[in-house]
Amino acid sequence: MEENRAIYEALVKFNEKEVKRLVNKVKEEGGPLEDVMNQLQDALIEIGNRFEREECFVPDLIYSGVIMKEAVAILDPMSSYKSGASKGKVVLGTVYGDVHDIGKDLVAMLLANSGFEVIDLGTNVEPAKFVSAIKESGAKVVGLSCLLTISFKAIADTVKAIKEAGIRKSVSIMAGGAPVTELVVEKTGCDYYGKDAVSGVKFALSVYEK
């Protein structure tokens, strides 16, 4: 049983070489791939929890995501990683006028690793594009990202467009990014302040678990 947690242990210690070695070993020996996936996922959850306790930081999230991707590529080089049944759909994008993508990409990665299907609209996204993506996908959660204070208006405009399209009640809106605060969320009419990437994932989980 001890060997079973070795991949988990290596990933939470950010030991990239060891994770790869162990995953290769399981693959060569024809071991249970599902167990490998579970360990990797457990490790990412643990790293997310440590992030919330400020024991891990953004680079750790990025690095562990990269190690995860490499491990999955070893297991199944043909397909991109999917974690079984989708927990739900989330539309994500950086609002109009803002081209910053690091925060948004990080949330997308964590959501995907947590089993969500992410519809990533990219950056500088016009409100109408958010509306059509929500309508087409039926996503119950939309995440608006930004890095600039000038983007407050674009957040408000996006929420307004969602209202005017008559779909406001069917979708929960979270906003995040460096300048966003509780006050910004309240004044722009969003539902949730995603103070960091991990809290964004928790919010999506809470919406779909309702």
Binding site: Y96, G97, D98, V99, D101, I102, D105, N124, L148, I150
Partner: peptide, 15 residues
């Protein structure tokens, strides 16, 4: 150019 004329310039970092 790539941005709305009323939005400030932004640095775009390679991903």
């Amino acid at each position: 150019i790539e941005l709305d004329p009323n939005v400030g310039f932004q640095y775009f970092e390679p991903a």
